[in-house]
Amino acid sequence: MTEHTPDPLPREWLPQPVGPAHQVDEALWEARLQRLTAAAEPALARLRAPAISWWSVLAAWWRPMVSAAALGTAAAALALLLHLPPPPRGTAKPPAGTATLSVVVGDGQPAALWVGLGAQADPALALIALQRGER
């Protein structure tokens, strides 16, 4: 820089300093420092606390006793499943007056109504079906 540096502006025109030039206000700086250190304490406490990661939690859980208990529970559940009686097959006739699935699927078709509900569906319909030999 070969150019001459301009003189500073008159001091009274400049904003008030906040730093070294105001050494007299030590109490203010001390108060600021105390406020800061108090606000920082929770973050410092977090830094002091040991870090907890997901794998450390997993490692703590995966201990022999815990794994043995988990294996035992799994084996008991499997044995219970194997020894349960199989569910009954759906061959029994539905109780009288119950609409069967075929009626629902038939969506009102006369033949489906007849097959599903028989004479209860409609006497006239029953007659037609009998005449056609559908039952």
């Binding site: 410092l44 406490a45 830094l47």
Partner: peptide, 14 residues
């Protein structure tokens, strides 16, 4: 400070 020492933080802040 990385280890959470309050006094070290206060010194840096000062």
């Amino acid at each position: 400070v990385q280890a959470g020492e309050s006094a070290a933080f206060e010194e840096l802040a000062r």
